[in-house]
Design a protein around this nucleic acid. Structure first.
Lengths: 146, 146
DNA sequence: TATAATTTAATTGTGCACAATTAAAATTTA
DNA sequence: TAAATTTTAATTGTGCACAATTAAATTATA
């Protein structure tokens, strides 16, 4: 690399910009569901496993309670999730979907196809990018934690 | 793609997570310079061209004045940039480096090498990732704007 | 040259994102 | 079992990020 401080040569910036623009694109599709992108991520996890603690949600999404607590309160306010203290262990807060939250899945099903089409990525390219990103993420996580 | 709504199969999420963790890693290195990652991005641009309008900065970084104005005020407060209205065109605000801002470049020079080492990416891999991201970003930008 | 349209920043309001701290509950250990 | 430690969420405070609006200056146009 010739000029590492040139902004076009900054890998992190390219990922940062990509993330922001990708999120904007998603938000166009999510407007109809009345959720933000981070809220949609919570839904993705809950559609897979209907009840999780805040901690488990955070582990899935790499987010802490400082982010999740107010976000989940907004989702509770919108009646798409429930929050209740566990009786077994009063430290834990269990998050689960309401019927409204469950029903949103139907609308969400359409997003991935519409999106891939709009971007113009073949399934093969999509999968390749996904794998590459996973590789890099694990390297970065290792570096952050060490 | 078998289960497109599974979070591990979401390309946007992998990029979103990557961006956040990469930024955290940067912040470890930037602590010494007393700037945040977005502030560092402003410095990168200004080290290349010492005077730009807010608009031009925004075009380089894909950020709008709602983000940049308060960020630049904090950087002005920290005495690393100057902000002044253009005399030619009073709508424009010219942003430039102070001596302190110029001097920070020296510390920044070390970051890319330390970082690549910490992540464990060869220059070839680094370049490859960079190129791939640029490709995807241009596709996404096109999709967002259309 | 008055007026309409455009350009440029700033402002306002909402929603993350995270470091650091606090507080309560559960678990471990002396 | 009493005390220390750990776990779990919530809170506090700061800094983005962006949509929408406002306001001022410039440029285009009737």
């Amino acid at each position: 690399m010739d000029e590492p401080l040139k902004i076009e040569n900054q890998l992190c910036f390219s990922i940062y910009a990509l993330s922001k623009e990708f999120t904007k694109l998603y938000n166009l599709f999510l407007k109809d569901m009345n959720v933000t992108y981070p809220q949609y991520l919570v839904l993705l996890v809950l559609w897979e496993q209907n009840e999780l603690t805040v901690k488990q949600l955070g582990e899935n999404l790499l987010l802490d309670s400082g982010t999740l607590t107010p976000l989940l309160k907004r989702m509770e306010e919108a009646d798409i999730v429930k929050r209740e203290r566990s009786r077994d262990d009063e430290r834990k807060v269990l998050v689960s979907l309401t019927n409204k939250g469950i029903d949103l899945k139907e609308k969400a099903e359409k997003i991935p196809v519409c999106l891939a089409e709009k971007i113009g990525l073949s399934p093969q390219e999509f999968q390749k990018k996904l794998d590459e990103n996973r590789d890099l993420l694990s390297k970065i996580l290792e570096a952050v934690e060490s």
